[in-house]
């Protein structure tokens, strides 16, 4: 069965909707996956249903200024309240005032200005998203007071702290300590992760080099981690090749 990629375009101008549809068709022409395009001119029950259906991989292309009581920002808010795996692209005029905020808060892929090289920018961004190959899976953990959600791609490595006897998840910017064991945490992860030491799991996609003899690995951030055991070499290398 073919996998599906759905494009959801929201813009109050029909001409713009058609233009975006043309660009999507052009970019996805050679794609193996089945492509579906849904268009909306404003927020509606149907769009709400579409947002709440998180079973499909989606790429949202939203106009910020909608001629409606709901703006594109509110639509993005609704999307992110249920779905952190789909991509969002905003179409906007020249107002870049809050771009930094919204880019971060709603994990927006890009802001494309409507009257400045729009066609080429959108084509380029769509191609980049399609190449990324659906890697927006989340690690979800709940404690009594906090819900933690992290993209698996953002996790660098996970290790067991000997003194605290807890597991530490190291991401690009932060460290999170959770009350799980190394083996327990493996159940939350996908095949891009591998045990490289009895107290360490690494995101293989983020490793630059394994130094098996010196017992350390180097991450794409430049960090060197001294937790590598030859015992796991076969599994890690086999996992990479398989």
């Amino acid at each position: 069965m073919k996998s599906v990629i759905k494009f959801v375009v929201v813009d109050d101008e029909e001409s713009c909707l058609n233009n975006v549809k043309d660009i999507i068709r052009e970019v996805t022409f050679n794609l193996e996956e089945e492509v579906k395009i849904e268009t909306f001119t404003k927020y509606s029950k149907k769009l709400e249903k579409e947002i709440n259906n998180v079973s499909e991989r989606k790429i949202y292309i939203l106009d910020i200024q909608l001629d409606d009581k709901f703006s594109g920002i509110q639509v993005a808010e609704m999307i992110r309240s249920v779905d952190w795996e789909s991509e969002i692209i905003f179409m906007t005029y020249h107002d870049k005032m809050f771009e930094t905020v919204y880019r971060k808060v709603y994990e927006v892929f890009s802001f494309i200005e409507k009257f400045h090289d729009f066609r080429e920018r959108l084509k380029k961004d769509l191609k980049t998203i399609l190449k990324k190959n659906c890697d927006n899976k989340l690690f979800v953990y709940q404690s009594r007071n906090v819900d933690l959600k992290i993209y698996l791609k953002n996790i660098l490595y996970i290790y067991r702290d000997k003194e605290e006897r807890k597991v530490v998840i190291v991401t690009d910017n932060n460290k999170f300590t959770v009350g799980l064991g190394v083996q327990e945490i493996l159940e939350f992860l996908d095949s891009s992760f591998a045990v490289v030491h009895r107290a360490c799991i690494v995101n293989k996609t983020r490793v630059q080099k394994y130094h098996w003899t010196d017992k350390y690995f180097v991450l794409d951030t430049g960090e060197e981690v001294n937790m590598l055991s030859k015992k796991y070499k076969k599994e890690v290398l086999c996992g990479n090749e398989c």
Partner: peptide
């Protein structure tokens, strides 16, 4: 945004 080391079970 934030940058720190957080013990999820002890937060709060």
């Amino acid at each position: 945004t934030f940058k720190s080391e957080i013990e999820i079970d002890n937060l709060g």
